[in-house]
């Protein structure tokens, strides 16, 4: 073997573990918000992802080594965090299967998938099971919801659905801020009014105490994880910064021009899956550009698409679609936005 004869000691497995560690705050918040249900979802998704990976590798007669690289477990965790807490068990299973098969192994396994497996799975689930994927449970800190600190209640919801708890559907669910604002706009209610009637608070959005996927709502927890990843140099700043800044700038300008139609930058930054997408999904190394300039463009593209889909699309949230769409142009960005090579500057 040629030089170098020393190595920094980093490894793919370590990187996966670091990302999981970075997701710990968001995972803990999910457990705080949804109690046993969160634990059920997370364990199911992770186990299913690893199980399907094993199955597929066996079926395709491939080496089982990738089973231990941590990527399947991470995909499972990601998937759980982007699912609504009330998603039934079979949605979790289908999601895990979609993520591992359609999202990853179909393309040759880790390193070759064009789309982030968990996000691809979420898109597939959202278009296949729109009702299950948009039923948002009332989080625990908000009084009046289902008692998810009780394992039986949580298991009932997970296996038999909300109806089986006997509680009225509307009493235990709520809308996401983005969804609420969008529906209100359709009925002609301006943004400030609908936010007021939602009792929107930026603090709640920061902590995560509002309607949404399990691991998406707490901007603070995700930010914490993101900063950890930046510090450990697992991800570089280009994508998250470009992504968030683009959304912020577009939201701020549009809000300034028409506050009744467009929500503020703070609202957009804290809402939906933006933080999760910006720090964890868009920075997925396999499906993002490798060179800094490409990463910046990728982040900007994600930001623009997110804002456009949120404000003009038929879905209230656009961050994940934005990332999946931008994943398609990664090969192009990689090819055309390379770093300048030493001595070739004209």
């Amino acid at each position: 073997m040629s030089s170098p004869h020393i190595h920094s000691g980093s490894s793919s497995v370590t990187m996966m573990l670091q990302v999981m560690l970075a997701l710990l705050p968001a995972t803990l918040v999910a457990v705080w918000l949804f109690g046993w249900l969160a634990l059920l979802q997370i364990s199911t998704c992770m186990a299913a992802a690893i199980g399907f990976e094993w199955l597929l590798l066996r079926v395709m007669k491939r080496s089982l080594a990738p089973l231990f690289d941590g990527s399947a477990a991470l995909t499972g965790l990601f998937l759980a965090l982007v699912l609504p807490a009330a998603a039934p068990w079979w949605v979790a299973l289908v999601g895990a299967l979609a993520a591992i098969s359609l999202g990853k192994q179909l393309y040759g396994g880790l390193g070759y998938n064009p789309f982030n497996p968990a996000l691809a799975a979420r898109v597939i689930l959202l278009v296949s099971f729109p009702l299950q994927m948009t039923t948002w449970l009332l989080p625990l800190p908000i009084a009046g919801g289902a008692d998810l600190t009780d394992l039986t209640t949580a298991a009932t919801i997970f296996f038999n659905g909300i109806a089986a708890t006997g509680q009225p559907f509307d009493a235990v669910t709520m809308a996401t801020p983005l969804g609420y604002v969008k529906t209100a706009l359709h009925s002609g209610i301006p943004v400030p009014q609908s936010l007021a009637s939602y009792h929107y608070s930026a603090l709640a959005a920061l902590v995560g105490n509002e309607g949404g996927s399990m691991g998406e709502t707490s901007a603070l927890a995700l930010l914490l994880g993101g900063v950890y990843l930046l510090r450990r140099r697992v991800i570089s700043w280009h994508i998250p910064l470009a992504f968030l800044a683009t959304v912020a700038v577009m939201a701020a300008v549009s809000h300034l021009l028409n506050p009744d139609r467009f929500a503020s930058a703070t609202f957009h930054l804290l809402a939906g899956g933006l933080m999760l997408c910006a720090f964890f999904m868009a920075t997925d190394p396999v499906t993002s550009p490798v060179a800094p300039r490409g990463q910046l463009l990728f982040g900007i593209g994600c930001g623009v698409l997110t804002w456009v889909i949120r404000n003009f699309g038929s879905y209230p949230e656009g961050a994940m679609f934005a990332v999946v769409l931008m994943n398609c142009v990664v090969p192009l960005l990689d090819r055309h936005f390379r770093p300048p090579v030493y001595g070739h500057r004209s």
Binding site: G109, L110, Y112, S236, P292, Q295, R338, P339, Y342
Partner: peptide, 16 residues
Amino acid sequence: SPCIRCGHCVQVCPVG
């Protein structure tokens, strides 16, 4: 193992 395209090599390359 397979490249996970983390881009660390691109970041550290002194030649670009």
